[in-house]
Each structure stands twice: as structure tokens, then as C-alpha cells.
């Protein structure tokens, strides 16, 4: 592994200052489950690695604040998947967090890290899109609350500006009931990177949100406000037409070795239909 300098700030302001000073020569270290691999294979060669885990303002936490559930940047997948509030109000996120890698990985991997890594296949991205999450970022210019669907640009690239650190992910407390589910396609039942990720949420007003990833440079959110998808009695042809509109942005890479484009596109439709059915059932069960 290439050597680097390691910094362990204890206050957010120190971290911001370090980031501002080193710019793209610095990488943030949260769970390390992505970064360490890149450091070892040389795809990341930072001069400075900044460990965020001792920053007082970024300790792991899940708290309710100002009409949102706020998940601190240091919070790991294990705790998100197990949290009662997440499981009750954002079950698809709990499901997604529960399938990121293995137990060992989930004990380290953070939600913020998963989001900032900006892999199109990030398991948590579709659920975050459906739940209307925002990324809370603190930088030299102050604090921003960035809607997640504008946060992802493409693989590995987000809209974070130089010197900005994500301190939390927040999701508005739902104002109406929603049934939602996270599904994915993998090559085996054991832990795996997904070749399709998908989250479908149907709410009490008949709005269907469908977000999917790993079939293009960034995860995508589509919304059906017509009520057709949410209606179990609607004809298949009508539903099919809406699905096609929602999936129109899917453009899987032909170079991926995990799955070929036509399989991914077909699975998008299979998963979409299955997830919709489950979401409707969950909404009905309350």
C-alpha cells in the first residue's frame, strides 16, 4: 500500500480546515470498507487520510430533530438496520443496510460513506431517494442540506465542494403512510455486489416512488403520481407503460462483468413489478 499521512481531528472545524488545505489530495476515512481497498490497489493515492471517527460532531447517532430522522455520518450499517425508528418509518433503508456486505463489513461501513463513495450500485441509494433524504454537508461556506437526487453526479462523483464534509443524512418524517421495500439482484444468495438495486415506495395518496441503481452512471428516482401503479386493480398494460417511462433512463454499462445490459434491464422490470406488489401489501398492512 502507498504510504500517506494520517490525521485524526477531534473537531469538525479542524477537519474542514484540513480538507480545505489539502483539497483533492485528501481522502476521508470513515468505515474504510471502500477506501482501504482503493489504497491497497492504488486507485486512491491521497497524500493525507483524514479519519472522521473521532470528530465530536460526527459521532454515530440516530436522532429525531426538526421533523427529520438524522443519521450521523459515523453511524454504521449494523446500527441503521437494527434501529427501531428506521425499521418502522424507513423499512426499505433498514433492508438495504442489512445487505451491504457481511456482518463484518456492516459493522464498519457507514451510510455517509456509502453515499459519498457514489457507486451507482450503492445499496442504500434507492431507499434514500424514495425517502427524500438530504445530505447535510458542512464546509468553509457553512452548512448545506443537499437533496440526495442532486447529490450523485456519476460513479465516484458527488456535488460536494472542496472542503465540505458530510456530517449527517437526514430524512423527513413521513407525513403519510408508505409501504416500501428494497430489492436487488446478485449472483449468489451470499453477500455480493448488486447488479440491480431497486426501492419501491407506495404511499397513502397513491403516489409511487421507484428508485433504482446499478443500471447507469447514477441511481435514478422516478415518480408516478397518476395513481395507476398504486392501484392493484389497474390493468397490466397501463402499469407496463408507466414502468417503461420510469425505466427509460436506465443505461447499463456494456463493460460490466457482473451482468450484461439486457439481463439488467429485464431484471429491472421483474424487480420493479415484484417490489411494487410488496410495497402495496406493506401499505395495506400498515
Amino acid at each position: 500500500m502507498h504510504t500517506f499521512a494520517y490525521a485524526r481531528p477531534t473537531r469538525l472545524a479542524e477537519a474542514v480546515a484540513l480538507l480545505e488545505a489539502h483539497g483533492s489530495d485528501a481522502r476521508l476515512l470513515a468505515g474504510g470498507t471502500d477506501l482501504i481497498i482503493r489504497l491497497r490497489d492504488g486507485t486512491a493515492q491521497p497524500g493525507v487520510v483524514i479519519d472522521i471517527k473521532r470528530i465530536a460532531e460526527m459521532r454515530p447517532s440516530i436522532r429525531e430533530e426538526a421533523g427529520c430522522l438524522v443519521i450521523g455520518a459515523g453511524t454504521v450499517m449494523t446500527d441503521i438496520a437494527a434501529d427501531d425508528r428506521v425499521r418502522r418509518s424507513y423499512p426499505a433503508l433498514a433492508e438495504a443496510a442489512a445487505v451491504v456486505g457481511s456482518v463484518q463489513i456492516r459493522n464498519r461501513a457507514t451510510l455517509a460513506g456509502n453515499v459519498c463513495n457514489a457507486s451507482p450500485a450503492a445499496d442504500t441509494a434507492p431507499a434514500l431517494l424514495v425517502y427524500g433524504a438530504r445530505v447535510v454537508a458542512v464546509g468553509p461556506a457553512g452548512t448545506r442540506h443537499i437533496p440526495i437526487d442532486t447529490f450523485f453526479v456519476r460513479s465516484g462523483v458527488t456535488t460536494l465542494a472542496r472542503g465540505e464534509i458530510v456530517t449527517a443524512i437526514e430524512m423527513p418524517v413521513p407525513d403519510r403512510a408508505m409501504g416500501a421495500v428494497h430489492v436487488r439482484r446478485t449472483r449468489r444468495r451470499g453477500h455480493d455486489l448488486a447488479s440491480v438495486t431497486l426501492c419501491c415506495g407506495v404511499d397513502a395518496a397513491g403516489v409511487t416512488r421507484l428508485a433504482y441503481g446499478s443500471v447507469g452512471p447514477r441511481p435514478v428516482l422516478g415518480v408516478d403520481e397518476s395513481g395507476v401503479l398504486a392501484d392493484p386493480a389497474a390493468p397490466d398494460a397501463a402499469k407496463g407503460a408507466i414502468f417503461e417511462r420510469l425505466f427509460a433512463d436506465a443505461s447499463p454499462s456494456p463493460r460490466s462483468m457482473r451482468a450484461s445490459p439486457d439481463y439488467r434491464l429485464a431484471m429491472l422490470r421483474v424487480l420493479g413489478a415484484r417490489a411494487l406488489s410488496t410495497a402495496i401489501d406493506r401499505l395495506a398492512q400498515g
Partner: peptide, 16 residues
């Protein structure tokens, strides 16, 4: 070889 290593060469786990 494109899939050197454990991430993309899949063997059965306890869940398989």
C-alpha cells in the same frame, strides 16, 4: 483475467 480476487470470483458461502 478480469475477476482476480474475491469480489468478483464467487464461491459458495454459508447462505448458498
Amino acid at each position: 483475467i478480469r475477476n482476480l480476487g474475491a469480489i468478483d470470483y464467487r464461491i459458495p458461502t454459508s447462505m448458498d
